[in-house]
Computed example of a mutant assay.
Amino acid sequence: MNKIMDLPVIYSLRNCPFAMRARIAIYKSKQPVLLRDLVLSDKPAEMLSVSPKGTVPVVVTPTGTIIEESFEVMLWALTQGDPDDLLFADDDTLDSMLALIYTFDSEFKRCLENYKCAKRYSESNIVECRQACEKYIVKLEELLSQHRFLMADRESLADIAILPFIRQFARVERQWYLHAPYPHLRIWLNRYLQSKMFSKVMTKHPLWLENREDILFCG
């Protein structure tokens, strides 16, 4: 029991792309954590006391360290364990990998939000918003035409960091996406969505505030 109580805690939101990629990295690291699912309309006081900004994910380590940004959570998890070498420890591609992630976190994410809003509110500029996203999607299609994953023929941090945002992109105009000229991207995304890993990461749990029971989560 004490060993379980000494595990890191992660506050998470099931469908949030940032929380999703944090859970994926934790799954890949095989680092066990205590999962506390929430909804943003009812945030636990315990989370707000350590992270007043009120966004997820938030990790609280047994030593009291607070990790509030999803990418930092991913790096933390993979430094605990990286059995699949997602960080490409013995490779010289780390800089280009980090640059790709940064581009999608900063530039693509803004375009994606505009695209989602255009669809939600039936705005007339939806094609323009989609085309803004496609400038980045084309780059991924090019990379995936060269190898099975974004950086090589094996999985990397870039794949799992960008995955949740491409999942969102594919859902905005589903029929358009299914016929868009991005076959390699569709194969890559479907491989993840149909995986045991994704099923585990997306399992629906009771909200923590309903019973305050932690969920043991690990890969």
Rank of each mutant, 00 (worst) to 15 (best):
I26P: 01
I66L: 01
P52W: 04
L143E: 03
E46T: 08
P62Y: 12
S124C: 00
R167E: 13
L94R: 15
T63H: 10
K116G: 05
S195R: 09
I160A: 11
S106V: 12
I4C: 10
Q31V: 08
F71I: 02
V59C: 00
V59S: 03
Y115M: 03
W188G: 03
V127T: 13
P164E: 11
R148K: 13
P83N: 14
V58P: 07
L209R: 06
L100W: 01
V33P: 07
D84V: 11
Y177H: 13
S145K: 09
K109S: 14
T61A: 13
R21V: 01
Y27M: 02
C16V: 05
V33D: 05
S106T: 15
K116A: 10
L34F: 08
F88V: 00
W208L: 07
F217S: 05
S49K: 15
R212I: 02
A118Q: 07
Y115T: 00
P44E: 02
T103P: 02
R186H: 11
I26V: 14
E46G: 04
G219V: 04
H179A: 10
K109T: 09
Q146N: 14
A180Y: 05
E210Y: 02
N15A: 12
F108W: 06
R14P: 04
L178P: 00
K30Q: 14
A118T: 11
Y121V: 06
V127L: 11
E68P: 00
A89K: 15
S41F: 04
A25V: 05
K196R: 13
R120G: 04
S195N: 08
R130C: 00
N15H: 11
G81L: 09
G219M: 06
D84G: 07
T93F: 07
P17S: 11
S49I: 05
F217K: 04
L185I: 13
I126P: 00
L140F: 01
E69H: 02
Y121N: 06
K43G: 05
R21L: 09
L34C: 08
L98P: 01
L75N: 09
A170L: 06
I162T: 06
P181H: 00
F104K: 08
Y177I: 07
L185H: 04
L34R: 13
I187R: 13
R36V: 06
A45V: 13
F88I: 03
K139P: 08
Y136T: 01
R110F: 09
Y121G: 02
G219K: 03
L112Y: 04
L163I: 12
